[in-house]
Write a protein that binds this DNA or RNA. Structure first.
Length: 431
RNA sequence: GCGGCCGUAGCUCAGUUGGUAGAGCCCCGGAUUGUGAUUCCGGUUGUCGCGGGUUCAAGCCCCGUCGGUCGCCCCA
């Protein structure tokens, strides 16, 4: 704001402690769900050779890369996504691991785009992929991870929907309508924009193939056009009790070229935001990025932190979940109040003992007035205040939320006693 | 790359027909030398985004520019 101060770059966020806490909550949830499904975490470099991203994607995307030349004259790029690096790593190291690989990564990505709601220039992505399994069991497993991630965050059937589709259905459609294979990408981009374009616009684009919007809509609205893969995935999710979360939607084809079969996107039911997550099968990407040396079928999905952040913010249950997580992970469990400065050495010893036992403890670094110390305890959202004063070794533990005090003694047992106390509820529930 | 809206204190904003700046919150201190949610008192903070123009006089009017935001394009 001030003229001479340097501010953050557009689309880059300063994560103050509050925001960082939310990020950590997301990361922890993503990681927990992935681990629950037997996925292992890996990490690729954030900076990659530029050609990794130019090899497979079109010219349009290269203008949205954060690219530069390093001091050694190499053309390098900050990763705009995680999949290309995964494919590179998989091609390099896959022989060391039994198949299928179930790998996930959480990393920051960078795209030079104009920032707007739900889209920034730097953001975090949760990416889960299954490599080396071509069957629909892998796709179903992956979609299940996506659904459970949403459930774990506090969302239910009423809140979101997985719109599931299969590009192969459109391959069949193209064949039946004499669309040449080399025109498929162009045709799919018309399908992709169906929802956003006007009827006239779509009809105009379809003229080369002698089709109309109505033809496409008819195809999309006929459940009979669902592919065999869709049926299998649907049955798989049905068996898990998760079928209610998915919905056949052939209008979903996803933007880019590398998808080869099943594709899906997660939306909030009211569709107030852009897609929360998306993914699909990309059976030829690794082969193509490794110049044919490694051929691994693959399926994966990604969820960014920005859109899901908005969705959590505007949803009741997910917000409550986050609040409850914050209570369980409060930064300070016990604030030590030094009532009498003469006892500061004893207090420091208690503080250290508690910390040695893994209890999160804070205390006034310098002499401070008594009520000031309680305000500090309140400010750091401590659960208990341990008062150390002239009656030492007698101590008083104040349960801050209930304004009640309990008596303790500074013995070797104290840390264990307080640890136990921390595992118990604050106090008696009022009838 | 294109368009709508907005730029005044760290944050949210007010500022009359033009007369050289205000509130609330936050932060710090005190009332309160052994008890934190309320209350009261005091304190810090601005080239009014930047540049030019009109005027005796511009936060206010005009032009330009930069930044933010929302949308279009795009969305790995």
């Amino acid at each position: 704001m001030a003229k001479n101060s340097i501010s953050n770059l557009p689309g880059f966020r300063d994560l103050t402690p509050d925001l960082c806490l939310f990020r950590n909550y997301l990361f922890e949830t993503w990681r927990r769900v992935a681990n629950r499904y037997g996925f292992v975490e890996y990490e690729a470099p954030a900076l990659e050779p530029t050609e990794l991203y130019l090899k497979k994607s079109g010219g349009e995307l290269s203008s949205q890369l954060f690219s530069f030349e390093d001091q050694g004259g190499r053309q390098v790029t900050l990763r705009p996504e995680l999949t290309a690096s995964l494919a590179r790593m998989a091609a390099t190291y896959q022989r060391e691991y039994p198949k299928p690989l179930k790998w996930f990564e959480i990393g920051e990505c960078y795209r030079y785009e104009s920032p707007q709601k739900g889209r920034l220039r730097s953001f975090y992505q949760f990416n889960a992929d299954i490599l080396g399994e071509a069957g629909t069991g892998a796709d179903a497993e992956l979609i299940s991870v996506a659904i459970d991630t949403m459930r774990e965050l506090g969302f239910c059937e009423q809140d979101f929907v997985v719109r599931l589709s299969d590009r192969n259905a459109w391959v069949d459609f193209a064949e039946a309508n004499q669309i040449a294979p080399e025109q498929l990408a162009d045709f799919l981009s018309v399908v992709d924009k169906l929802e956003r374009d006007s009827a006239e616009e779509t009809d105009k684009k379809l003229v080369p193939w002698s089709l109309t919007r109505t033809d496409l809509e008819k195809f999309i609205n006929d459940p009979g056009n669902a592919s065999e893969a869709y049926q299998e995935i649907s049955a798989n999710l049905q068996a898990r009790g998760l079928a209610d979360f998915i919905e056949l939607d052939l209008s979903i084809v996803r933007g880019l070229a590398y998808y080869t079969g099943t594709v899906f996107e997660i939306f909030d039911t009211k569709k107030t935001l852009r897609a929360v997550a998306g993914g699909g099968r990309y059976d030829t990407l690794i082969d193509s990025l490794s110049d044919g040396s490694v051929d691994l079928p693959a399926t994966g999905f990604a969820m960014g932190d920005v859109v899901i952040g908005h969705l959590i913010e505007q949803s009741t249950e997910p917000t409550l979940r986050f609040e409850s997580w914050k209570r369980e992970n409060r930064p300070v469990e016990i604030y030590v109040v030094i009532a009498d400065e003469a006892n500061r050495p004893q207090a420091l010893k208690v503080v250290q003992d508690l910390r040695d036992h893994g209890i999160r403890v804070d205390y006034p670094l310098m002499p401070a007035k008594f009520n000031k110390q309680f305000k500090a305890a309140e400010a750091c959202r401590a659960r208990f205040a341990l008062i150390i004063g002239s009656e030492f070794p007698e101590l008083s533990l104040k349960i801050l939320a209930f304004r009640q005090e309990e008596s303790y003694h500074a013995t070797e047992e104290l840390p264990a006693q307080l640890k136990k106390r921390l595992s118990e509820p604050d106090g008696p529930l009022l009838a």
